[in-house]
Amino acid sequence: MTAIDLQQAAPTARGGRISGHRILFHVTAVLVAAIFLVPLIWVTLASFRPTAVSMQPPIPPWPGDNATFENYIRLENFGQSILHYTANSAIVAIGTAALTVAVALLAGYGFSRFRFPFKPLAFILILSTIMIPFQSILTPLFLLLANLGLQNSLFGLILVYTTLQLPFSVFMMKNAFDSVPQEIEEAARIDGIKGMRLLWQVMVPLVLPGMVTSGLFAFLNAWNEFLAALVLLSDQDKFTLPVLMTAVRSGRYGAIDWGAVQAGVTVMMIPCLILFLILQRSYIRGLTAGAVK
């Protein structure tokens, strides 16, 4: 047996190994991506088609054949301008996100760092409200808001959405605070920072990914929420976009105006996409925070 010659003229060239696994992996990934993307593409393409063909399968005809903005024009001419309803939705979604983050920040900090009686019980109670389907409490919620004079108001809707969003957000923020080492807080105490300043100057920058994540969730849920908005809002000029969709849907003689709906859905997607693209780095960091040291 001969020993292996360690001083060969040139090292053996090693190409990348193309295995069946890798091909299978890519094919699967493309298929999964397609499953998610096709409905979005369908909606977007259909929104540019004349009403007559808007219900046909998406491909063909391409909208290029007879592309039209008439769906968007109809959407714009429905009630107030589409910008007005977008503003309604934006007020509700941004308000919900801001209020949720503010409350969840304080609650998460409290649950993570302070000792108080019945803390585990209180936390479990908050979490357990996730298990209540909110549709089942819609009637009492409506009555409650009516008594407070908050029915048919965007602020009332913000309060409802925030309440629904809080359990998850408090959980999220508690985890975010738990993953901040105790020593950083102690170092800050030695540096003479305490109370709200400690929270604001030291802790908030460290839990920012968690805040972004819970804010984003609150925003998207509020932006898309339909049932509570439908029940609580009665004036047409208070409608949010999802409620508007049901209103524009009804065309002449009981027909359904799919074109306008698809135009509306396309408009609704845009802010979500932009927001998500801007914040996705923080969002992913927030979701995995504390998962590994």
Binding site: I184, E186, A187, A188, I190, D191, G192, K194
Partner: peptide, 15 residues
């Protein structure tokens, strides 16, 4: 902060 002390932690505890 009022004790006139400074502390160095095992985990550094930098911001």
């Amino acid at each position: 902060s009022d004790r006139g002390i400074a502390m160095v932690f095992q985990t550094y505890a930098l911001y």
